[in-house]
Design a protein around this nucleic acid. Sequence first.
DNA 1: GAGAAGATCTCCT
DNA 2: GGAGATCTTCTCA
Length: 214
Amino acid sequence: MSITEESIDPLPRSFYERGTVTVAKALLNKHLVRVSGSTVLIGRIVEVEAYGGRNDPASHAYRGKTPRNMPMFGEPGHAYIYFTYGNHYCLNVTTRPPGVAGAVLIRAVEPLKGLNTMKKLRPGVSEFQLANGPGKLTKAFAIDRSLNEVDLTRRGVLYVGKTRTESSFAVERSPRIGITLGTERLWRFYIESNEYVSRYVLTPGNRWIRRQWQ
DNA sequence: GAGAAGATCTCCT
DNA sequence: GGAGATCTTCTCA
């Protein structure tokens, strides 16, 4: 039986009020739901990164509040979407109580519903590559800055939730990707052996390798 | 106001 | 494996 929007209950605000690393790990295996008109897109979150506030040099909030990073300082459980490299949007969920910066970057999801729509939005790529990167998933899920600051704790155009029955899984961690500062922190988390994660994975020999798709 | 950097992706070699 | 695309955001003068 395929998954439906109705079977996914939004996560409460209290879920996001905790520490950012705790929330990041807890977001794995949860579901991202995008509703656009009559189209419903659903993906299972398989890879995330935690970003802190003034104590985290890799975070947008490191230098304090700016017009762009305002959502990171706002109410938890909202979307923080920013545009980067002239091409891509990145989707974060905000954490911590208001006034304390924190966000979790959703780096990759496993597409579960609406694959035909995702393939139209990202033509010519395999199912594994539809949403295995922060810029790729926002394109596959039609997410742009018009959804910035959307409340993710309510059913609507974009929310995060969980199904009533959850499968078990193991979590791997690594340094965050694409940053130059704060790399000593192992704040990237992903589901072990999952085929839909991006970039680098840990091999059985404890070596980091760049993923290859054939 | 100018210049540089950037939580990326894709194409080309 | 490397470089270009492309443009927003921030810092500094």
